[in-house]
Amino acid sequence: MSDKLLKIEDLVVQYITDDGIVEAVNGLNITVDRGKTLGLVGETGAGKTTTALSIMRLIPHPPGKIISGGIELDGMDLLALNEQRLEKIRGDVVSMIFQDPMTALNPVITVGDQIAEAIMIHQKVGQAQASQKAREMLEIVGIPGNRSNEYPHQFSGGMKQRVVIAIALSCNPKLLIADEPTTALDVTIQAQVLELMKSLKVKFQMGMVLITHDLGVVAEVCDDVAIMYAGRIVEQGTLEEVFTEVKHPYTEGLFNSIPNIDDRKEKLKPIRGLMSDPYNLPKGCSFCDRCDYAMPVCETEKPPKIYFSDTHFVECHLYRDQQDFKLKGGMK
């Protein structure tokens, strides 16, 4: 068995609407090793959630459509499977945690039943056994098992997210996709939930794709980082490589957008402009209209992929001729 758990190759996903074609994901490549965590970082609209839903094969169709590419999960070609096979994989081999815990739980079903449902589907056990296991899962995420008969509205936001995590982990998946699992939570609760996910990741030995726009969360949890912009990975490397040797101007922009606690008089440096219109992406580099380093070639040619190590690459024209080019913003 290879050590690659998830392998996405040249994935292209589009939303075909009356107003035109939204190019949400444009030739995406990522891999996740068994037991490792990949942070998928980017701003709103970069295609992170679309990528996640593609792995689940839950892209709403219509309007969404996987145009081309390959998704291989645990040796299975996900794009070739029919709906019945996919239903067996969802929740069992791969699980997903959604962004907003307030709306992710069914309001008219008890949390215990919502956890037990996945167990009954995948582990072929009866109601009683599944309910017992559901209570155990609640205990694992730090909720007393006797609350399993309560409904979602009786839980706080952080508790709900714990329930969502319990559902996702109930069948011991090999891969967990967490789509901004802490964005909707208070900062204190965020830390608790992250801590919980970190410990459960070790306990269940699963691989994880953590989708976020928060570099702090990435530093906390991830082994590898992929920076996503306009449907492509523009820079990828190990946590250390990306955090210490920032190569892509967009990655630099993300770091510069974080307030500096040591110098609060310093002005924030947000990335100027807005993300390119996904209905009408530029011909060259998608980031060129916001990039401080943009050159004429950026507007006309797609940037090449340049490797700095086996794991660290960037898609940028800056490094094509001079591999040791240094961004001026420097490091944090």
Binding site: M56, L58, N106, Q114, E117, A118
Partner: peptide, 22 residues
């Protein structure tokens, strides 16, 4: 279109059960 329908689908619940139960 609610999130909890996606949650149910992500659990591996079949389409018919998603509609009927959830």
């Amino acid at each position: 279109r609610q999130d909890y329908i996606n949650t149910a689908k992500a659990k591996g619940v079949t389409r018919n059960v998603v509609i009927r139960k959830h």
